[in-house]
Design a binder for these strands. Structure first.
Length: 278
DNA sequence: AAACAGGCCTAAA
DNA sequence: TTTAGGCCTGTT
C-alpha cells in the first residue's frame, strides 16, 4: 500500500482487496451510504469522510493526520487480504467464496458502536437496523458538518446510559431498548471494559460480553470480530448455519480455518447472501 | 392477514 | 442439552 497526500484528500495506490461496495455492503457496518457518483460517505470514530474510486486508486477525504490516526487503521489497510484468501481457500467451496468476496476488508469499528449496533441487529433486517442506528445518532449523537450536509456521531455510552426506555422510544428499537441501556450502563460503570477485552483472550471477551442481557453467541462474536478486532471470532447467524450445513458435516469447527476464521466467515456470509444482490 | 426478519431469554422436557 | 414460544416493530 502506498499513498499520496493532496490538499483535501489522500490517494491510496498499490493496494489489493479493497472493493468499496463489498466492504461497505457485506453486512459488517450500517453507517456508510453510496451516493449518485458511487462514492461512499459515512462517519466513524466521530469523524465524517467520503471515499471514492479514482481510476485504480482509492481516495479518501481528509488530511494526512486523519488518515494516519484513523482511516488507515479503520480500513485495515496494512493487512494482506490476498494472502489471507489463499490461506482460507482450503477446499473448492472456500476457493469460490473467497474469489467471489475478494475485495472485502473487515473494518475496525468503534467498540461501543459495534456492541450497540449488533444488539440492535438481532431479529431485524438491514434496512431497519440502519434506520434505528441513524435515529439513535440523530437523537443522541453530536452533529458534524461535512461537505454541506449534517451528519451525526454515534452517541457514546455515557450519553445512552442515563436514558430511560421511554426516552429511547423514538428510535423504535422495540424490545432491544432495555438491552441497549443496560449495555451502556455496564460500559459506563466499568463493569464491561471493552478496551481491556480487546487486548485479552477471545474466550474471556466472549464470556464477558455474554454476561450482558440481550447478548448471546452471535452478537458477541460480531462485537469481537468487528469491534475488538479479533479475526478468529466466528459469528453464526441463520445464513451461516445454512452455508455450513450445505458444505460441511455436523462436526464442523471454525478452527479449521485457523487464525482468520472470522474473515472466512465474512466471505461465506457474503457468498451465501449473494443471491439477494441485485 | 399472518408470517417473517442477520437473536436472545425463559421455561420445560 | 435441546426445544418452543414470546418479544417490539416494520414490511410483505
Amino acid at each position: 500500500m502506498r499513498y499520496n497526500t493532496y490538499k483535501d484528500h489522500i490517494k491510496i495506490t498499490e493496494i489489493s482487496d479493497f472493493d468499496l461496495k463489498k466492504t461497505f455492503e457485506c453486512g459488517q457496518c450500517f453507517r456508510w451510504n453510496e451516493d449518485e457518483s458511487g462514492a461512499y460517505t459515512g462517519i466513524a470514530h466521530g469523524k465524517a469522510a467520503k471515499i471514492w474510486y479514482d481510476g485504480d486508486a482509492i481516495c479518501i477525504s481528509g488530511d494526512e493526520d486523519d488518515f494516519q490516526s484513523c482511516w488507515r487503521e479503520y480500513f485495515d489497510l496494512d493487512r494482506d487480504y490476498a494472502a489471507i484468501r489463499d490461506e482460507l481457500a482450503i477446499d473448492s467451496y472456500m476457493r469460490a467464496a473467497t474469489d467471489f468476496g475478494a475485495g472485502i476488508r473487515i473494518l475496525r469499528q468503534d467498540r461501543w458502536e459495534a456492541l450497540c449496533s449488533f444488539i440492535i441487529s438481532q431479529c431485524n433486517n438491514i434496512p431497519r437496523i440502519k434506520k434505528i442506528v441513524e435515529a439513535l445518532c440523530e437523537e443522541f449523537g453530536d452533529p458534524v458538518e461535512f461537505e454541506g450536509k449534517r451528519y451525526y456521531t454515534f452517541p457514546d455510552s455515557g450519553r445512552i446510559s442515563i436514558l430511560t426506555p421511554e426516552r429511547l422510544a423514538p428510535i423504535r428499537s422495540g424490545f432491544r431498548a432495555n438491552y441497549i441501556i443496560a449495555a451502556a450502563k455496564a460500559v459506563e460503570s466499568g463493569e464491561l471494559d471493552l478496551d481491556a477485552l480487546a487486548v485479552g483472550s477471545y474466550e474471556n471477551a466472549l464470556k464477558a460480553l455474554k454476561r450482558l442481557n440481550g447478548v448471546g453467541d452471535k452478537v458477541a462474536n460480531c462485537v469481537i470480530l468487528f469491534g475488538l478486532n479479533m479475526p478468529n471470532a466466528f459469528p453464526v447467524d441463520v445464513w451461516m448455519k445454512r452455508a455450513i450445513s450445505e458444505h460441511y458435516d455436523k462436526s464442523f469447527d471454525p478452527s479449521v480455518f485457523g487464525r482468520y476464521a472470522g474473515i472466512a466467515q465474512q466471505y461465506m456470509f457474503y457468498y451465501a447472501r449473494s443471491g439477494l444482490l441485485t
